[in-house]
């Protein structure tokens, strides 16, 4: 019954186009700039498409900067953060879902409370604690920080997932002769796998994107992660826009890849429980 008239369709199309331009065009422009030789980058009036597309910006990035080191550091730190977070959050969320013990609801409420914390509220004491422990300027400090910041949403998201798995299935596995542990390994984990993967991806994105912890906790150039590396590249001297845009493009590629996996979950169901920032 809701067939649209011509005008309504035109209006809808226009509104979508405006929204899409606002949200996505700057990213497209970054990608196009990254592929332009510098003569074209500074051409006036600017042209949309590169006439002589080039990879020289990326080449300079690899040769003249520590981009590859930053990239490697980011991969190491983010992956370690994902592993540690899942290692703690999967059993934690299972315990919060399937067991009834004194203080359970209080723990759940505390977790929700810490979800609202912003980095700036704890970064100063956090930095001093890390210095005292001798962990300042190590990747370990970053992994711990990202894990601490991912845990609240990881626990909540996984808890929702475990709650959606009928208890009957575990009970069936246990009457079929499985121990509780084996029931979890063979029944619960496979069913919660999409949720575990999504949680891991969101943790990865959080760690991959972080600027503030890396800025404050890391001082050696060879330990820096991408966001800090790029910010320093920008601040260094005369801005090489082609190279900067190329670095931006390369940084978001992993995010784009993993995000396309979680996108359907995010829009489909449990809403904004996902990320923070």
């Amino acid at each position: 019954m809701s067939r649209r008239s011509g005008w309504q369709r035109l209006g809808l199309g226009l509104a979508v186009a405006v929204l899409l331009t606002f949200a996505a065009f700057p990213l497209l422009w970054m990608g196009l700039t990254a592929l332009k030789p510098s003569a074209e980058i500074f051409a006036w009036p600017p042209r949309l498409l590169p006439e002589a597309p080039t990879l020289s910006n990326i080449g300079r990035l690899f040769e003249q900067t520590h981009f590859v080191t930053y990239f490697k550091n980011s991969v190491i730190v983010s992956s370690a953060a994902v592993l540690l977070t899942l290692l703690l959050a999967v059993p934690g969320a299972y315990g919060l879902t399937r067991y009834r013990f004194f203080g359970r609801e209080m723990i759940a409420a505390t977790v929700l409370f810490t979800y609202m914390f912003a980095p700036i509220m704890i970064i100063i004491p956090f930095y001093i604690v890390m210095r005292t422990l001798g962990l300042a300027n190590t990747h370990m400090a970053l992994v711990l920080a990202y894990c601490a910041f991912s845990l609240p949403f990881a626990l909540w998201m996984l808890r929702t997932f475990f709650q959606s798995i009928p208890i009957d299935l575990e009970e069936a596995a246990m009457t079929d002769g499985a121990s509780r542990f084996r029931a979890v390994i063979h029944v619960v984990i496979p069913m919660a796998l999409p949720g575990i993967i999504a949680t891991g991806i969101l943790t990865f994105i959080l760690a991959w994107n972080d600027y503030i912890f890396a800025r404050i906790l890391i001082s050696s150039d060879n330990l820096k992660t991408l966001p800090v590396g790029i910010a320093d590249l920008y601040n260094a001297s005369v801005v090489d826009w082609g190279m900067i845009m190329a670095s931006g493009l390369l940084v978001i590629i992993p995010v784009v890849i993993v995000f396309s996996y979680v996108q359907k979950f995010l829009v489909a169901g449990w809403g904004s429980g996902g990320v923070k920032g």
Binding site: A23, A24, I205, P227, I230, Y234, V251, F259
Partner: peptide, 12 residues
């Protein structure tokens, strides 16, 4: 596509 601005690093 519209969600991308939220997913990319702040520095970018």
């Amino acid at each position: 596509l519209v969600l991308f601005p939220y997913m990319i690093p702040t520095v970018v």
